[in-house]
Amino acid sequence: MTKKIEAIIREEKLNDIKDALHAIGIVGMNISEVRGHGRQGGITLVGRTGTYQVDMLPRIQLNIVLSDKNVERTIEAICGAAKTGNIGDGIIFVYPVDEVVRIRTGERGHEALMYEGDIDTLPVQE
């Protein structure tokens, strides 16, 4: 089974998280800039005089697709690097993926996700 991990993270934690993911053998990923808020509601910014409230905060959405045997390790790596303990650290969603196609080769499914040295090519660690 193939899964997609979608993690909403702090912008400033992206580098730490990338390093943590590389360390466990995650090769492919993509990110997008998103805005939103969870329970913390927003932040206060300073204007000409006094402050104003901004409710949609900039965050990074990190997308990774991999086989489900490695999902837990990946989640652990992301949480380990993304956590500050303060409100606003983010959230992780995991979805099933129906199909994967690598455009260059036409490979499908699990094959399309394999890179040399990728986490999915390594033996599962316990």
Binding site: V46, G47, R48, T49, T51
Partner: peptide, 16 residues
């Protein structure tokens, strides 16, 4: 200084 007193020294405030 006024901006700092009220919160932080805003750059927009300084140039204003």
């Amino acid at each position: 200084l006024l901006s700092w007193r009220d919160s932080k020294p805003s750059v927009l405030g300084i140039v204003t």
